[in-house]
Write a protein that binds this DNA or RNA. Structure first.
Lengths: 201, 201
DNA sequence: GGATGTGGAATGACGAGTCATTCTATTTTT
DNA sequence: AAAAATAGAATGACTCGTCATTCCACATCC
């Protein structure tokens, strides 16, 4: 009845599931593992979630929604110069990486488990990727229009390349001794690469 | 006795497994699926492979070995100028992408299935990544020494970033209408990005 | 004391791996 | 060269363990 309590239970189960999935992976996690972590019977689980896929979906989808928010919130702010673009890169990159740093479990699940469990989930991941790609591409197009980026850039490919680096950074951070320092190094190195390239001027 | 025939059977099973794994994924592929594709009894499978993990390992490891060869073969050739470095990027990138283009099934398996099946396999993937990272880093270090790359580059991070883009390219190619054209676009866009950056000069 | 929530035993589906048996091809015997 | 013997390759019914899911007896709360 008390929908507050129901919500509370649901999020307890969600949290325990995150631990379990991050630790042992989707297929090796039993419903009873999740229940055991909470000290509840595993039948109880089914009062709160339809089935195993349901909860995995909930776990992953919650995180994807957060990513989507970051991607979309940054969308409308276009810059006018290389300098403001650079600080934009830093800010968006920073937000994205902080998202991954905030919950190592989620990052682990996304990188190691999410793909290939269920077609619908794959599609979800894919659509976020596509969204991120087109957002980055819009930024590049803006830079070309405003005249501070080269006019001949292959924006479709470069936007994907940039997001690939973001993913690479998030992955790297997972194993870094000092995540936030590592994150900053990535942001600096990538923004330099993006704007100036590596060749000696 | 005839070890030729045994080898032949093994590779038939290997090929059928690749199809199956690429199509349905590791967990959803039954040994009987593989056998069915070949029109053999599933008991026969066990004459040629120890178990399910054994064949998955064989499939993935074969491909990883190919990647390793590409990575290692390119290692010793250091360039002296931006121009020769650029053509080096093109050549190595091209070889790598052709590897992924050559067998879409393998690329699918690597991206969607390989991770999280077995710790030993994860470790294998990881070690290839590390190898690739240090190879790219050696190239960057060479460029700095030779004086055609900026001396202040964060080579550790940038080498990872570059490999992340390579992976991004390979992934993109998987879904491209025209893979080889897409591959070339990636190579051009990334080599431009790497050397000159995107900012208008 | 009824309604609602909970635990964990019971169920059933599923699939990996085994093994006794059959089949086939090659070799040996007559 | 036909018949018999042998090796070893192929088969698939069967076993066995593993979970996801269901069900119901019991507890807890109003």
């Amino acid at each position: 009845m008390d929908s507050d309590l129901i919500e509370k239970r649901r999020s307890q189960i969600l949290a325990a599931s995150m631990d379990a999935f991050a630790e042992k992976g989707y297929h090796d996690t039993k419903i009873s593992d999740i229940a055991e972590r909470l000290g509840i019977g595993h039948g109880t689980f089914y009062r709160y979630f339809k089935n195993k896929l349901d909860i995995f979906f909930a776990v992953v989808d919650g995180f994807l929604a957060q990513i989507k928010v970051v991607v979309e919130e940054e969308a409308p702010q276009f810059s006018d110069s290389v300098e403001s673009y650079r600080s934009q890169i830093r800010r968006i990159g920073g937000r994205m990486l902080r998202l991954f740093m905030a919950d190592t479990r989620m990052a682990r699940i996304i990188f190691f488990q999410a793909l290939g469990v269920d077609p619908a989930l794959d599609a979800r991941l894919f659509s976020i990727k596509t969204l991120a790609d087109s957002m980055v591409e819009a930024y590049l197009a803006n830079g070309i229009v405003k005249g501070f980026l080269r006019p001949d850039l292959d924006t479709a490919v470069l936007s994907r390349a940039i997001n690939a680096m973001t993913l690479g950074a998030a992955f790297d951070i997972l194993f870094a001794a000092n995540p936030s320092e590592t994150g900053n190094r990535w942001i600096e190195a990538v923004s330099l690469l993006m704007l100036s390239g590596m060749a000696k001027p």
